[in-house]
Amino acid sequence: MNKEKHVVVIYPHPDDESFGAAGTITQFRKQGVPVTYLCGTLGEMGRNMGNPIIANRETVPEIRKKELINACKLLDIDLHLLGYRDKTLEFEDVTEVALHIKSLLEKLQPSLVITHYPDHAVHPDHNALGRAAIEAVRLMDENLRPTVWAQAITNTAYEDLGKPDIVYDVEPYFDQKMAAIQAHKTQASGILSGFKRKDKSNESLREIALERLGKEAFYIWDFKS
């Protein structure tokens, strides 16, 4: 892993940073590299309310915000909320969102931006914010542009895009990743329980999660193509 000056992670929801890139983030922090998370929304339209239930439609935004703050403290990263509404990012003007993000990137001056790969990120919010984040970097002065790592999570990503440029085995940092995931109490149990397999009922939660989340892969965005 190259030594970066400052890493900015741009995803739309609380928990995207933990499920998607917590191992990579932890590696950077171990190197002393500052990391800032620009989180698009509070995930207020999500259906998971905890197991047992700890939230409802009225309380979930504030609860998810607190969970996000706790996860960011565990990962030792700075947090900036972009203030958009969950499940509406695809309807925002891409250029307006890009200019918003660009203004923040010009202040933070990162050497690396991590975001979702547009059209290969499953959720419309993921695709939309990934597209805006990449556009924000494209609009920057070419001499000041950070590198962009785009995370593709569709089942056809390898087939459509080829092998990722960067793949990190984050097992050495997986305890930190699991702690960050589990800080998102409304989301963690529901999502992780979906990983369980009937034919391997003796697997521990950590083993199940490690198999699914133990590698973090990224494509380096080519602004010249």
Rank of each mutant, 00 (worst) to 15 (best):
Q176K: 11
A209Y: 01
A217E: 05
D165N: 11
I181K: 02
E211M: 11
A209K: 03
K185Q: 15
R212T: 03
M178T: 05
F195D: 05
K196Y: 13
F174M: 08
K215H: 12
S204V: 05
D169T: 05
G162D: 06
W221D: 01
F218S: 06
L210P: 02
K196S: 11
G194C: 07
S201F: 13
A180S: 15
P172C: 11
K177T: 08
H184Q: 11
K163F: 13
E207A: 15
L205W: 04
A188P: 03
A180W: 01
D199K: 14
I220S: 07
S204E: 07
H184I: 02
E207F: 10
L213A: 04
K177R: 08
F174L: 09
R206W: 12
A180I: 04
K177C: 07
V167R: 08
R197H: 12
D165K: 00
L161C: 02
I181R: 02
I166W: 02
I208M: 09
Y219W: 15
L210T: 05
S204I: 06
K198P: 01
Y219T: 09
A217F: 09
Y168D: 03
K163Y: 15
I220D: 03
R206D: 03
E203P: 00
L213M: 14
F174R: 10
Y168T: 03
F174C: 06
K196D: 06
A209L: 02
I220F: 06
I220M: 11
D199H: 13
E203C: 04
M178G: 04
G190T: 13
F218D: 02
D175V: 06
Q187P: 01
P164E: 00
